[in-house]
Amino acid sequence: MTGPAAPRRILVVCLGNYCRSPLGGRILADLGGTAVEVRSAGLIDRWTQAHPEMTAAASALGYDLTGHRPQQVTPELIDWADLVLAMDHPVLEHLRDIAGPDLAARIRLYLDRDRDVPDPMGRPAAEFTACALLIEAGAANHLR
């Protein structure tokens, strides 16, 4: 008899771990429950919490980002993950460069059909809401 399967490890990455990847990570963790272990990171390390507009958009959908603390992606984080989800093509390419050929197969876009999750940074609150809805809708692609 075998024990329960280990949780699937998912890493969600955007530019700054400030808007898109914190929400993607939170949604996947909340919906995936014990079947997943989720972390999020960014290509750059600049902020100390999630963006206030994304925190508000997340809250309106029932997700809590108030405890989020951004972190920068590392080769070790990529190695930790079974699946690495990039929010857009530039992030995807950068992650493939960091990971190298051995880990590149673990990395793909968050959305299906080769689509980017648009970065709402610097845009009106409605853009954060639209982004949050897109991220929420895409989560099912990564949960078994």
Rank of each mutant, 00 (worst) to 15 (best):
M1N: 11
N141V: 11
P52C: 06
A41M: 13
D79M: 08
P52D: 10
G16N: 08
A139C: 04
D102L: 14
W47A: 09
L133I: 08
G32A: 07
L111Q: 14
R20Q: 04
V36R: 01
I27E: 01
C131H: 04
A126P: 00
Y63M: 06
R69A: 05
G62A: 05
I135M: 03
H94S: 12
D82Q: 06
T2R: 10
R20P: 01
G24A: 03
G42T: 08
A58F: 07
A57G: 02
I107C: 01
W47R: 10
A105P: 00
I44Q: 11
P75C: 05
N17P: 03
L23R: 04
H51T: 05
E127R: 10
I10E: 02
L11R: 06
T2E: 11
H94R: 15
T48H: 15
D119P: 03
H68T: 07
P7M: 09
V38G: 00
P101S: 13
V38H: 03
I10Q: 02
C14V: 07
D79W: 12
E136D: 10
R113H: 13
R20V: 06
V13M: 03
I135D: 00
R69H: 12
D97W: 10
W80F: 04
G67Q: 15
D45C: 03
L77W: 13
L15E: 12
V84S: 00
E136T: 06
G62Q: 10
P75R: 14
L31K: 15
E37F: 08
H94K: 13
G122R: 07
I44G: 01
L11D: 01
R8F: 09
L85E: 01
G62R: 08
